[in-house]
Amino acid sequence: MTDEPLLEIRNVTKRFGSVISLGGVSTTVRAGQVTCVLGDNGAGKSTLIKILSGVHQPDEGELLLDGRPVRLGSPREALDAGIATVYQDLAMVPLMAIWRNFFLGSEPTKGWGPFRRFDRATAIETTRRELLDMGIDIRDPDQPVGTLSGGERQSVAIARAVHFGARLLILDEPTSALGVKQAGVVLRYIARARDRGLGVVFITHNPHHAFPVGDRFLLLNRGKSLGDFAKGELSPTELTRMMAGGAELDQLAHELQREPTEKAPQ
């Protein structure tokens, strides 16, 4: 019973006109585990998570939540089903205060009828507390999100998703734009969300970020699945090789090796 996956993706296909963004992809996500989706640019990673978060609907295949098939018609429906997403472009409004962004779309209210209003005190207090709980040290919840650094923004977005998403957290390349140190910080938040019992889908094209936190790895290439592995079934080197498409990587290594001998400067 406890072994039942939180989310199961079965043979999901998505086409945009003649482009097959995603063709027959399957994997599972369990509570308290991290499923990594790896692939090069254009592999279909974002398309997959947009299906999971209700932005797109699959043309074929199905999603099972707690073993039951679900249809996620809109981001709202996905949120209501407990699926929270941190998008590559973050879904935060730069000019708005952190606390306003934190509760955007799910604002707490107080009062009645025409006097129903945004409960600002609760929102500000909760934002401060949730960020602190995740170990995020922001200076002032009232400052615009646009003034935060990339890593801080990711962290706020993750804290928001943890606060609302409860069950399944999806992260689209949260570390791709970050330096080594900031990426480490974000990976730590991912681990913390996992330890809280959330199922996490972590999209990345960097195997070095995926391997330390991942429990399962789904490899995509040009919309096709190259395989879906549990952690023990794969070594980091194999993972890197498969991602780059084995032979292609060898070729590349070969090419790069020759270069320094021919170049004079630098």
């Binding site: 978060s53 472009d89 879904a91 409004v93």
Partner: peptide, 15 residues
């Protein structure tokens, strides 16, 4: 504020 600031981001979080 959200709609004017970034309509797409707003839609994604259910506004």
């Amino acid at each position: 504020f959200a709609t004017g600031g970034d309509a797409n981001a707003s839609r994604n979080v259910g506004v």
